[in-house]
Write a protein that binds this DNA or RNA. Structure first.
Lengths: 191, 191
DNA sequence: TGCAAGTTGGTACGAGCGTACCAGATTGGC
DNA sequence: GCCAATCTGGTACGCTCGTACCAACTTGCA
C-alpha cells in the first residue's frame, strides 16, 4: 500500500462517517470530533484532510447525494415500459425524491436546501443533487409513457408536500401521506 | 404599572428579540445570550421567563408566524373581486407564502419545517402557521373567482419551487424565480 | 543508509453554549 | 411600614465546538 493510498482511504473513511452522521442526525451533528470518533480516527485527521468544516460538510453532502440518488436510479431502471397508475407513480416519485427512511433521514433531505442558503459552497452540490432527482423523475415518466416535461414541477410539488408532512405527529408517516396527496393530484390531472 | 405588567413587557421584549433573530439569522442564532443582549436585558431574564430554550424558540416562532402572516392578510384583503391573471396570482401566492424579503428571511421560512421535525413542541406551531397560509391562499382564490380547493397544493408547489431556488446564486432572486415558475404552471393549467 | 517530506495524533486555546445559583432589590397585601 | 413573595442580574459550572500547534513517527527517494 503506497502512502497516498492510505491517505485516500482515511479521507474516504471520514467522508463516509460524515455522510452517515448527516443522514442520521442532520447537519448540526457533523462536527470534527463526531466525524473523527465515528471513523475511528484521531481528531486531527479531520483538519489534516479537510481545509475546514465547511469543506468536510461539502464532501459529505456530495457523498450523501450519491447514496440517495443511487437507490432511485435502480428503482427507475427496473420500471416497466407501460404507464403507471397515478398511485404507483406518486409513490415512485416520493421514493425517488425522499427515499423511504424515517423522519431523521427525511429531515436531512430537506435541511440540504436551507444549508445551501447559508453555505454558498454547498449550492452547486445541492443544485446538482436536485438536478439528478429531476432527471430521474423525467426518466421514469419517459419510461412509462408520460410527458416528461413536468419533472421539475413534480419534484417541487413532492418536496412541498413532504415538507408540510414533516410537522405531522406520526413518525415515518410523512412519505406515505405525501405520496397519497400526490396520487390524488396526479389522478385529478389525468395522464 | 403593576408588577405583572412589567413582567409581561419583559417577556414580550424577549419574544420580539428572539423573533427578530429568527427572521434575520435563523434558528441557530437564537441563544439565551443573543436574545437577552438584543432585548437589552440580562442573561438570566431569559431563563426566568422561559422554562428552557425550546420554550423560547417556540414562542418566537409563534410570533414570527404572526408577523409573516399579517402582511399576507393585508395583501389578500386588498384584492379585487375579479380573477387575476396567472402571473399576478403566482406573485401573490409566493408573496403570501414567503414574504418578499432577502434570502435570510426566506431561509427561516423553510427552516421552520426542518425544525418542526427535530423539535416536537414546534410541530403544532408550524402546522398552524402553514394552515394560516393555506387559508390565505384559499381566500385569495375565492376572492378572485377561482376554485379554492387547491390551496394546499399550491402552497406545497410554491414551497417546493422556492426551496429549489434557494440553491441559486443570486441573492434575492429566489422569490422572483419561483413566482415565474409558478406563473408558467398556472398559465398552462388554465383557470 | 540517511534524510527530507509527508503523516499522525495528543493536546491546548479561546469562545460560545444551556443552565443553575443566589444575593440583593423591588413590590403588593396586611 | 413591614414582610413575604416575586423579580433582578451578576456570576459560575461544565460542556462542546473549530482550529492551531507540535513532537513523534513513517515513508519514498537520493
Amino acid at each position: 500500500m503506497t502512502r497516498s493510498d492510505r491517505g485516500e482511504r482515511r479521507r474516504d473513511a471520514l467522508l463516509d462517517a460524515a455522510a452517515a452522521l448527516l443522514k442520521q442526525e442532520g447537519f448540526a451533528a457533523v462536527s470534527h470530533r463526531a466525524v473523527a470518533t465515528r471513523a475511528g480516527l484521531p481528531l486531527a485527521a479531520t483538519t489534516y484532510y479537510f481545509r475546514n468544516l465547511d469543506d468536510l460538510v461539502e464532501g459529505a453532502t456530495r457523498r450523501l447525494a450519491e447514496d440517495t440518488v443511487a437507490p432511485g436510479r435502480e428503482l427507475v431502471a427496473a420500471l416497466p415500459h407501460s404507464p403507471l397508475e397515478p398511485a404507483r407513480l406518486a409513490e415512485l416519485i416520493v421514493r425517488v425524491v425522499a427515499g423511504n427512511g424515517d423522519r431523521a433521514q427525511l429531515l436531512t433531505v430537506y435541511e440540504r436546501y436551507a444549508q445551501a442558503g447559508r453555505r454558498p459552497g454547498l449550492r452547486p452540490v445541492v443544485r446538482a443533487w436536485t438536478q439528478d432527482l429531476v432527471d430521474l423523475v423525467a426518466e421514469s415518466l419517459r419510461r412509462t409513457g408520460r410527458d416528461a416535461g413536468h419533472a421539475r414541477r413534480l419534484v417541487a410539488l413532492a418536496d412541498g408536500l413532504l415538507l408540510q408532512h414533516l410537522a405531522d405527529e406520526e413518525d415515518g408517516g410523512a412519505t406515505a401521506a405525501a405520496a397519497a396527496d400526490l396520487a390524488g393530484i396526479l389522478h385529478a390531472a389525468g395522464p
